[in-house]
Design a binder for these strands. Structure first.
Length: 466
RNA sequence: UCCCCAGUAGCUCAAUGGUGGAGCAAUCGGCUGUUAACCGAUCGGUUGUAAGUUCGAAUCUUACCUGGGGAGCCA
């Protein structure tokens, strides 16, 4: 069903016409005159008034004696109407020949469509500030490769604008949630001296006369920070040099990673659940027009309420036995693949926690289950509709001796982890946390097929430009 | 790293081994309420690269390059 998708860059035209109305009328007006300019997304509050807009010509239609000029300004999209008698002859002819995406200044009276009632602008002033060259992205369908080559221009089209607006709102909600709950933002470094988890492939870079690696997680640093601040989180880009070639993978992606002092596995699940419900609520409250543009079935998001089901890894294996195919049977001790996760998540109408994975398939810093050392106090949150792992986390190993032994068992250089072991030497404490992948979450909330559309400039295997 | 598919006009796609076309874009013209507007005309090509088979290759073969889909790995 996913197949190749010739993308209609402008395929949202049947939906809401506004590109965004995220925070109506919250832009401050004051002494900075720039802020006094009227934005398209606020035009509904100016019906009957004469306004001046600065933007770009998004599309143009004409019936000979009347032009329909669609103007966008980054905040929204409005149809301008220019009748033969509204402007002088030269301006009328100019408007008919202005190329798509030219920078324009227009003025006129805000009005409403005689039939649909949609807000529009009756133009009596039209000035081309900069005529655009032939714009590569047309109003017809395009292939993904072409659109990605023109990602810097593709951002201007409505679907991309909507998805990235939702991303921005999601990031805002993430910060709001943690600050409302007493977390301190502690940023982790991007250059790191060693592999955080020692397993996956890292990007290596020159660091003067030494080598450095791009971080794959701020996790270990957050553990140290939790001892300083109690509740902490980091939010930033992370890097994986995996040669993954799927719709769920980027080589550069954003993660938010909270870490909580004196938290147990159950605490981690409670917080992750509360956090996710908050994020969905925020997007549902603030991004209705964008969700409509993306034609997202919001009923599926509105159905996400507490509590989320919590099943153990062992119970997940049972579910696979009941509902999975022959090939989807996983022997105990192995992690699930994407297909297995989808089978499990399809049994529920909301995200599902899978906890207590086998110790062998989780990172060395996961605490062993005191009742069974073969299991770890780890947890993943699997999103519905096949979006896979949205959150991974758990309770951390807080015993110095156990951790030293695990670092040795994983073949990691102990000297690189001395600072990390210090967290256990000086007042060790139970703690836990999780990481949430921003792009996968945005893809799920937007109902997008591929995470590459959820980040402004995606970095993929074989794609480093633009 | 492995498997599959595709590279033809700026874009999206056609074309039994036998004269490479259409829609959109662009350019020109027509139309007073259009919604990816519509109608007419014009413009547009070293068929990804290299070699091979053949009287003849966009079409068949091989290699390479690029892109897409999937797997593994992972978030």
């Amino acid at each position: 069903m996913w197949g190749r998708f010739p993308q209609k860059a402008f395929s949202d035209r049947s939906g809401q016409r506004t590109m965004s109305s995220t925070t109506p009328n919250t832009i401050p007006t004051g002494s900075v005159t720039y802020y006094n300019r009227v934005l398209i997304r606020h035009l509904a509050n100016h019906v009957g008034q004469v306004v001046e807009l600065y933007g770009w010509l998004y599309n143009r239609r004409s019936s000979g004696k009347i032009h329909f000029l669609e103007i966008r300004d980054g905040s929204g999209l409005v149809q301008g109407v220019m009748g033969r008698n509204d402007v002088d002859e030269a301006t009328f002819a100019l408007a008919d020949h202005t190329p798509q995406e030219s920078a324009v200044k227009v003025s006129g009276t805000v009005s409403q469509h005689p039939k649909t009632g949609a807000v529009e602008l009756h133009i009596n002033g039209f000035e081309v500030l900069s005529q655009a060259g032939e714009y590569p992205i047309s109003h017809k369908e395009h292939g993904v490769g072409f659109l990605m080559d023109n990602r810097h221009l593709w951002l201007r089209s409505s679907r991309q604008h909507a998805a990235l607006t939702i991303r921005s709102e999601l990031c805002l909600a993430i910060h709001q949630y943690f600050h409302q709950h007493g977390f301190v933002q502690v940023d982790a470094p991007i250059f790191t001296p060693n592999a955080c988890e020692g397993t996956t492939n890292l990007f290596e870079t020159a660091y003067f006369d030494d080598k450095a690696y791009l971080t794959q997680s701020g996790q270990l640093y957050m553990e140290a920070a939790a001892a300083a601040f109690g509740r902490v989180y980091c939010f930033g880009p992370t890097f994986r040099a995996e040669k993954s070639k799927t719709r769920r993978h980027l080589t550069e992606f954003w993660m938010v990673e909270p870490e909580m002092a004196y938290a147990t596995l159950d605490d981690v699940m409670d917080v992750a659940e509360d956090f996710m419900v908050y994020l969905i609520g925020h997007v549902l409250t603030h991004c209705r027009p964008e969700l409509a543009t993306l034609e997202r079935d919001v009923a599926k998001l509105e159905a996400i309420v507490k509590p989320f089901p919590r099943i153990s890894y062992d119970e997940a294996l049972e579910l696979l036995k009941q509902h999975g195919s022959e090939e989807q049977q996983v022997p105990w001790g192995e992690d699930f693949g994407g297909d297995e996760e989808t089978v499990i998540s399809n049994q529920f109408d909301r995200p599902v926690f899978i906890h207590r994975y086998p110790t062998q398939c989780k990172a060395f810093y996961m605490k062993e289950d005191p009742t069974d050392p073969k299991k770890s106090l780890s947890v993943d949150m699997i999103g519905p509709e096949g979006y896979g792992e949205l959150i991974g986390g758990g309770q951390r190993e807080d015993d110095l001796a156990v951790l030293e032994q695990k670092i040795a068992a994983h073949g990691l250089p102990k000297e690189d982890f001395e600072w990390f072991l210090d967290v256990r030497r000086y007042g060790t404490f139970s703690h836990g946390g999780f990481g949430l992948g921003v792009e996968r979450t945005v893809a799920w909330l937007c109902g997008l097929h591929h995470v590459r559309e959820t980040i402004p400039f995606p970095r993929l295997l074989d794609r480093l430009k633009p």
